[in-house]
């Protein structure tokens, strides 16, 4: 059986008091680790009698937990408190705590082989780390610290290519940098400026930025997610948006704006065969969109029960786990 987005169906939904900002699925298990705005990391077991009750809590951060990554031996978390913490996967004990950046960490990702971690933060630096030892490997600097309008910029997200050789990083004003993971050298930049709305007149500040990145399974296409230009920047009122790049040639190959949904595309994932792309995010409400990359049409759109901050598929892609504002939701995509 293959995952079929057209069969998308919500099967469970759990209410929570907190906002879950990040997550990682434990491979080959019904368990999920989620980073919360209450500074904790929670582990949920969806086969437990009361799956809504966390199986364990990891306490150690001092601000929102915005990134969760799993290595062979550790849970690695990133937070606005500027720290990364390595937790033993079995015992939940902290084994390493590092002040990783000078400003908010926006996320942490693990390479496909599990050996390298990448962190991004509002100090506009991306860092590569040895996943096992926590040793810093490279410091990646090219994103500008200030926007063209003299305000602090932000570095929201990163993604490894499927072969683990390239890291993409995306910032507030729409610049994507592509880095050679082995050398730490900048390979290429691409621009998606529509993600950034600067209102020079009516409200005189900005909103938006690149909020999600994903490589296609063949590594040739890079999806860049965010929100289209906004009229009223008081709200997440722009159309949910992503842009596809043939990144090696620096070419934009498709630009999508959702007709039905407004808000940020907070997370994206390609199907294993590269035929569709899943998007999650939202404004005050939530969105899930499945997009056919051959026909360039929506396969399925779904109003999610909450603004989704992150989601992940089970190994067979037949179950989707999403976390976000006050909720966890599970969907099935079984044919």
């Amino acid at each position: 059986m293959a995952a079929n987005p057209q069969k998308l169906k919500k099967v469970k939904e759990f209410g929570r008091r907190d906002i879950l900002m990040s997550m990682a699925l434990v491979p080959d298990s019904p368990r999920l680790l989620a980073g919360s705005f209450d500074f904790n990391v929670y582990e949920f077991d969806f086969e437990a009698e009361k799956p809504e009750q966390p199986k364990r809590e990891l306490k150690g951060h001092r601000s929102y937990v915005t990134g969760v990554a799993l290595t062979e031996s550790h849970i690695v978390t990133a937070s606005y408190d500027r720290h990364m913490i390595w937790w033993d996967r079995e015992s939940g004990e902290q084994t390493k705590r590092v002040r990783a950046h000078d400003k908010w960490l926006r996320g942490v990702e693990v390479s496909p082989d599990g050996k390298t971690l990448a962190s991004v933060a509002d100090d506009m630096v991306a860092r590569l780390w040895d996943a096992k030892t926590g040793k810093p490997l490279h410091e990646l600097r090219d994103h500008k610290p200030m926007t063209p309008h003299h305000y602090p910029s932000m570095l929201f997200c990163c993604a490894f290519s499927p072969d683990g050789n390239v890291l993409a990083t995306g910032d507030k004003v729409g610049q994507v940098c592509l880095w050679d993971v082995k050398t730490g050298k900048l390979i290429k930049t691409v621009e998606s400026p529509k993600c950034y709305t600067w209102d020079p007149r009516q409200r005189r500040h900005s909103i938006g930025g690149i909020r999600s990145l994903a490589f296609s399974p063949d590594g040739k296409t890079l999806a860049v997610g965010g929100m289209d230009q906004v009229g009223n920047i008081d709200h997440l009122g722009g159309k949910a948006r992503f842009e596809l790049f043939d990144w090696q040639n620096g070419k934009s190959v498709h630009d999508y704006q959702a007709d039905k949904f407004k808000g940020l595309v907070e997370h994206m994932a390609f199907s294993p065969d590269g035929k569709w792309l899943a998007l999650g995010g939202g404004d005050n409400g939530g969105l899930l969109i499945f997009f056919d990359l051959e026909t360039k049409k929506e396969i399925k759109t779904e109003k999610a029960p909450m603004h989704i901050h992150e989601f992940a598929f089970s190994a067979d892609h037949e179950t989707l786990y999403a976390v976000g504002h006050n909720k966890i939701a599970l969907y099935e995509l079984k044919d």
Partner: peptide
């Protein structure tokens, strides 16, 4: 007057800009 602080969306990013200023 320094408008516009009405951060119904993305309060923290808005305040990062405007409070820094």
């Amino acid at each position: 007057s320094r408008a516009w602080w009405d951060s119904h969306g993305q309060n923290f990013e808005t305040h990062l800009e405007l409070v820094s200023e």
